[in-house]
Structures are given as structure tokens and as C-alpha cells.
């Protein structure tokens, strides 16, 4: 029973990481129709920057948080402006190829600018263990679950009540009409990129605190694909829950079946979902089938 609870709790924590990154995929997909293949790499770069800030300063968590969030926003805006914006209106194949190109560049940059070795990231009490009735959990793991729910609540209110969220929904449903109605689609796209970078950056930093910081961190982005597909590519909140489901499923497979299957459990799930329910659990059914 404890074993199951341990698997579940660590599954939820890793699932929250996937969920945050999956939300970033979904928010960009929803507002621009583009799947950003470099999301995991962006989250890795932000984690590395946060690590540099924390080792460069005295490690005050507020400074690190503000610094890395600021960096995440600027970074995303720069990427959007330099690489993505000029490709708007090009075929979707070229746009995706640009993000794939970006992902290789980012991966190379991390190893060139920092190094290829794993690091321990220590920030405030992030590494400390908390006892939950016999189950040991790291503070960072709790923090990431909390962050996921904050993000879900934030996104929900944002889409439901704010003027900008309404604009984003309008762009998602029909960007041509939205433009005619006076919505500045460029600005919506910028906001989507900034929000996605902040969310996936948070996931990356917390993952680095709970486990380790290494150049294989970009794999989180790949693991989050199943989560977005499960939740529905165009459903931001659905993707978050997709992440939790994938994280738990992965851990249960790893704990009860085989540890090597754990790595590919998510990818097997993708193929199954695409066969059965290609628009995901919460997505709209408008994805065209053949």
C-alpha cells in the first residue's frame, strides 16, 4: 500500500511537470496552430539560467524566481520575434521545421554555454524531505503540483474573464475574423509564447531542484507530448490533467511491470490515443480525420 502511494505521489509530481509543459504546448497550439517542438529545450535553458542565477547570487529564491521569470519572458519574446513571426503564413511544415531547428540549436547551446554534466540545484528548502504519513516527498515536488493547480486556475480565469483571454479564444476559433474584429493577433501570439515559456520554465526549474539539472532535461518536452495529445492539443486545461494521468501511468508501469517500459509508456499511450480518440479527452472534435 505504501509502495502504491509512493508511486502515486511521485507520479503526480512528475505528472505535474509534464502537465505544465503540456499546457505550454497547448496554449501555443491554441493561439497559433503551431506545435512548438522546442518547448522542452526552452524549459531546459530557463532552468540553466535559474541555476546560474542561484549560484551567482546568494541563492535567494525570490531573486531567482524574478530573474528566471523575467528571462523566460524575454527569451520567449525574442524567439517568437526572430524565428517564428517571419514564418507566419508559410506552410505548416516549414513552421514546424523551424521549431525543430530551434530545438537542436538550444540543445547544442546548453552544452556549449554551460556543460554536459549533471548538477544539483539547491534552492531554499526545495530539496528538503517532507513526511506524509510514511511517504517521503520533496518540497519541490509539492511545489510543482501546487504550481500546476495555480496555472490551471490562472488559465481558467484568464480565458474565462479577461479581455485578453477572450481575444485569445477568438484567435483560436478563427484568426481571420478575430483580426477583422480588431484583435491584434500578433500581440496574442506574443502573450501565448511568454505564458508558455513561464509555465514550462517553472516546470523545468522545479524538476531540476527535485531531481537534477542535466542536458537531458529537454526530454521532459518529449514526455509532455503524450500529455497534450491525451488532454487534447487545443485544450489548455485538459493538457494539464493529461500530464497528471501520464505521470501516474508511467510510474505505475515502472513500479509494477518493468522499469525499462517506464521510459516509453507515454509514447505507447500516444499511439493508442491516436487510434481510439485522436482529439484527446478534452479536445474539440474538429481535428480532421481521413
Amino acid at each position: 500500500m505504501t509502495y502504491l502511494l509512493e508511486l502515486l505521489s511521485s507520479g503526480l509530481a512528475i505528472g505535474a511537470v509534464y502537465g505544465l509543459i503540456a499546457m505550454s504546448f497547448a496554449i501555443i497550439y491554441k493561439s497559433t496552430g503551431l506545435l512548438n517542438f522546442s518547448q522542452g529545450e526552452m524549459s531546459m535553458i530557463i532552468a540553466y539560467v535559474a541555476w546560474s542565477i542561484s549560484t551567482g547570487t546568494d541563492g535567494n529564491p525570490f531573486i531567482v524566481a524574478i530573474g528566471s521569470i523575467g528571462f523566460a519572458i524575454l527569451f520567449a519574446l525574442a524567439v517568437e520575434r526572430i524565428a517564428i513571426r517571419p514564418m507566419m503564413g508559410e506552410p505548416i511544415l516549414s513552421q514546424i521545421m523551424v521549431t525543430i531547428g530551434l530545438s537542436v540549436i538550444f540543445r547544442a547551446l546548453v552544452t556549449l554555454l554551460w556543460d554536459g554534466l549533471p548538477h544539483n540545484m539547491e534552492l531554499a528548502a526545495g530539496n528538503a524531505l517532507v513526511d506524509f504519513g510514511g511517504i517521503q516527498v520533496r518540497v519541490a515536488q509539492i511545489a510543482v503540483v501546487v504550481m500546476l493547480f495555480v496555472a490551471i486556475a490562472g488559465m481558467w480565469t484568464f480565458f474565462r474573464y479577461s479581455r485578453f483571454g477572450l481575444a485569445m479564444r477568438a484567435v483560436a476559433s478563427d484568426d481571420g475574423t478575430a483580426q477583422l474584429m480588431g484583435v491584434k493577433t500578433g500581440r496574442v501570439q506574443m502573450a501565448a509564447w511568454a505564458a508558455s515559456a513561464v509555465m514550462s520554465g517553472t516546470a523545468g526549474v522545479l524538476f531540476a531542484i527535485a531531481f537534477e539539472l542535466s542536458p537531458s532535461l529537454y526530454g521532459l518536452g518529449l514526455k509532455a507530448f503524450p500529455a497534450t495529445i491525451l488532454g487534447g492539443l487545443d485544450s489548455v486545461i485538459g493538457s494539464a490533467f493529461g500530464g497528471l494521468i501520464i505521470g501516474v501511468a508511467e510510474n505505475l508501469v515502472g513500479g509494477y511491470i518493468s522499469s525499462s517500459l517506464k521510459e516509453i509508456a507515454g509514447f505507447v499511450i500516444i499511439i493508442l490515443i491516436l487510434m481510439i480518440r485522436p482529439y484527446g479527452l478534452f479536445g474539440e472534435k474538429r481535428i480532421e480525420r481521413l
Binding site: 506545435l35 517542438f37 505548416i92 514546424i96 518529449l222 507530448f225 503524450p226 495529445i229 516509453i264 509514447f267 505507447v268 500516444i270 499511439i271 491516436l274 487510434m275 485522436p278 481535428i287 480532421e288 480525420r289 481521413l290
Partner: peptide, 13 residues
């Protein structure tokens, strides 16, 4: 069975 970018994801998987 699906259009668009799904093949990229499944082939990656």
C-alpha cells in the same frame, strides 16, 4: 488516419 503534425509526433515516439 489524421492530418497534419500527428505523423511527426508518432514517428518521434
Amino acid at each position: 488516419r489524421l492530418k497534419g503534425l500527428y505523423l511527426a509526433i508518432t514517428t518521434l515516439a
